[in-house]
Design a protein around this nucleic acid. Structure first.
Lengths: 242, 242
DNA sequence: TGCAGAAATTGGTCCGACCATTGTACCATT
DNA sequence: AATGGTACAATGGTCGGACCAATTTCTGCA
């Protein structure tokens, strides 16, 4: 029994996107560049502007492109010929429970990224991480508290060095999605204070090529964040905000 | 400094989707149900059919809806008022390296899900997992090899019992995306044979409420899968297919 | 030279029409 | 009665042209 393809009769949208992807690659367009106007695309591809717009709407929904009225359509992410799309949509992210759920996902990914990092980091990569760590520690002592930006830089360095781009993509996407919460989640301003020492222990385990040790330290770090959040949530509830 | 919303002057698309979401919720439409035709929506909402179509194209891109020409538009997933969209798109998933990358993501998530499962599984949930395990083991002995379906059922049960719906959503989405590979990846037909015993050990750790033990066993399981894949890839390369 | 207003450009919306596919009711053949 | 074909209506897909709204660019005056 051969698995015959669905054979969609009309698939102009996809055709348009394929041609457009080829164009972007051929022209070596990078994020931020402007791509041809809808009217030009319509004329060149011999399809109606409606069809072009439907196709661009798809790309816009995937975050590949940004449309600015009166200005043009701009590339927002790198485009390649073999792109896989994984649209995730989940319900109600405005409550404490959802925040915990995303944190659990992050814990799994963070631990794995740290472990892989310990296996794959070369001297140069290790140096980058160490630098980010020191910048973060300096900021911590200067302000007597965790700094989100420097903290985030440190973690991103780990994702990058892990050798698997998916970690950075997924966690960054989640981070942006919950930006409002991660800023001052639940009103806890010294948020992440308890997590401070584990940044250095993670680095040390990575430097020692100890994958399981790095994984364990990463788990401890997220555990402290989780504890902080639970404390903040409890405070809110006690204050009668819920 | 208040973070004022972008406030796009023209955002009829979103407005349409909000109203449509309310409609779906109010009418209690479930996946598989058919929703009003584009022409009806256009008339009821007092917007052009073009706008309705752009809105539905967005939902289609998110996998919330499926459009069948000549038939209608059908709901494909649950819709709620507070939906968060996390569209991920990554390049080139047709090679061995990408398969490894997704497997690393899965390892992190699988381990975390198993650990949470050990903490949260009640007697009823534990019984469900045990049942899936036995079905899988039976299928294994009957066919003298791993069965993808029963194996998948077992893992899905763990995701569900973890109490965090994100695990099932993310891993299922990845599973569907890489369907062709997970079936007979790289032509290895006794794929996953080595992973068999770890299913039971994972269950035992969960039953014993041993979160870290469950995490460790899950890591071992994925490690065997990874080893199998590496072996298959090496075979392919030796055979000159690459 | 500098700047305000006009004009062109571009994405957003609307309308009406027609095409392609699907589902259904009806009819003829067996 | 069952089967298969056919016409018709419903529905999503595409088209062309028009106008609106935001932005950019050009122009001419001070």
């Amino acid at each position: 029994m051969l698995d015959l393809p669905p054979l969609q009769a009309t698939a102009r949208d996809d055709a348009v996107l394929n041609v457009l992807a080829d164009f972007v690659i051929h022209e070596e367009l990078k994020p931020g560049d402007r791509l041809p106007t809808e009217r030009v695309l319509s004329e060149r591809l011999k399809v109606s502007r409606t069809t072009v717009r439907e196709a661009l709407t798809r790309w816009e929904g995937l975050g590949l492109v940004e449309r600015r009225q009166g200005s043009g359509t701009y590339l927002k992410a790198a485009v390649s010929r073999d792109m896989l799309h994984l649209p995730l949509t989940f319900a109600s992210g405005n409550d404490f429970e959802s925040l915990m759920h995303t944190l659990e996902i992050r814990r799994g990914l963070e631990a794995e990224a740290a472990a892989l990092c310990a296996l794959r980091a070369g001297p140069a990569e290790l140096e980058i991480i160490r630098q980010k760590l020191e910048v973060m520690e300096e900021a911590f002592h200067a302000r007597a508290g965790m700094s989100s930006d420097e903290d985030w830089d440190f973690h991103q360095a780990i994702y990058r060095v892990s050798g698997n781009p998916l970690f950075e993509q997924i966690i960054t996407a989640m981070h942006e999605l919950f930006h409002r919460f991660w800023e001052h989640p639940l009103g806890v301003h010294d948020f992440g204070h308890a997590s401070f020492p584990y940044h250095r222990t993670i680095y040390e385990r990575i430097a020692a090529r100890d994958a399981e040790g790095a994984r364990a330290e990463a788990l401890k770090l997220i555990a402290t964040v989780e504890a902080d959040l639970r404390r903040g949530d409890a405070n809110l509830k006690r204050a009668g905000y819920k």
